[in-house]
Nucleic acid binder design. Structure first.
Lengths: 224, 224
DNA sequence: ATCGAAATTCAACGGGTGTTGATATTTCCT
DNA sequence: AGGAAATATCAACACCCGTTGAATTTCGAT
């Protein structure tokens, strides 16, 4: 592995301080926390090994810095969108489809790149997917920084599905969350399964499928 | 981390050779390939460090050995079940619900433990979930050993959903696959989200929710 | 232009890694 | 019981890890 920033598809302009975050983000997203060394990150960022420690401290603190850089941005975007669609829907509340759309639309890395001009969002979403599916990190990092949003999402869902039991709602959310994670993890699985007919990079198509799929699932298991 | 076999919930009777696989399975499932050292595995198995190399060669080969030990068992179980339900359904083929049930029922680690008396299935399913969500391992290991089954599953689905486009079927499968993975990854997420009301260990409940959820999703996105 | 602070590099450390070859022990067949 | 083959232990290796303190460069305010 002799990656540098160019091969990882990242800008080379930003300061060394940010290049370290970009490189760490890209590599952690692929290989996980333990699969990446500080030296690999420094090499990819074209930076001295010691500089990572100088700017961010321990390896674990660098990992946290990568996670936090975009976490709040995402959080406020999603909260805004959820609030807005609740306001627009009026007292009876938004439909299941609208809620699901509001939950995942701000996660689209393509749109985020267009808005912010930052190509790193793809890697970040893959990193969050990795964290979400990790027994080690999933419990702490996810809970700590995304639970308020998830609770509001579930509250809105409960309102739209009055007959839903807790079991159905929370298991449904778990299926939903797992589906999102695998969608953002670039495994290229369905490309190969479909013999090239379907592209896992076509996130527009993914969204067009996911919203009705998940809405139908939630409605079905909450109907009795 | 000072785990031994007892703390990992494993038998201590089997031969040292198998204890290594059991310990590796449990630890890889939690921390991933790079998050576990041979020395930790040996310590957990209460075995000398060199013994792992003696029996299984390189670390990567040990990882493969862990994966392969149960992969074929699972594969034949699932193929049998799928074939059986196709035979029973007759020429018009089984329903979407039946197909989904056949696909995931043999994955239930609780039932597998009852049938085989082996408590390691829980760890194995978590390990496969880890591999499935890994950009590194997911492409090769999953494709190589589970694709024939998946192709048959998708073929059956296409028959049950004649109007389905390839995009819808394959994306639906991807959501399904991600949901399964997160269900078997022990994050304890919904336990905390629901404040203890819902238990992520209650796999019976998970199945009772997942089958109608996924069936409804597939039917919905394939209806036009 | 100068000085001080921030950024960056350099070299090195103590410690943990996977792996191996030589050695000891157990197992099993005749 | 004896002896070969399989199993297990031991000690050591070469290498890579994260981190640090001192030295050097860059940069901005005066």
């Amino acid at each position: 592995m002799s990656n540098n920033l160019g091969e990882l598809g990242l800008e080379q302009n930003p300061s060394k301080r940010e290049r370290i975050l970009d490189a760490a983000e890209a590599l952690f997203a692929i290989h996980g926390y333990d699969g990446v060394t500080i030296r690999q990150i420094a090499h990819a960022a074209q930076v001295d090994v010691a500089l990572a420690s100088y700017h961010y401290g321990k390896k674990r603190e660098l990992f946290d810095a990568v996670f936090f850089r975009r976490a709040e941005v995402l959080n406020t975007l999603r909260l805004e969108r959820l609030t807005r669609c609740e306001v627009e829907a009026g007292p009876e509340g938004p439909s299941v489809e609208t809620i699901i759309e509001a939950f995942i639309r701000p996660l689209n890395p393509c749109e985020l790149e267009e808005q912010t001009g930052d190509p790193g969002w793809h890697n970040y979403m893959a990193l969050v997917a990795y964290i979400n599916n990790s027994p080690v990190w999933g419990q702490t990092m996810m809970t700590k920084h995304f639970d308020p949003l998830v609770q509001r999402f579930i509250k809105a869902l409960k309102k739209a599905l009055p007959n839903a039991s807790d079991e159905h709602i929370y298991w449904g959310y778990n299926f939903f969350s797992g589906a999102i994670s695998l969608t953002f993890t670039r495994t290229g699985r369905i490309d190969r399964l479909s013999d090239g007919v379907v592209s896992s990079n076509d996130l527009d198509m993914a969204y067009r499928c996911m919203v009705p799929f998940m809405a139908a699932g939630f409605k079905k298991i909450c109907e009795n």
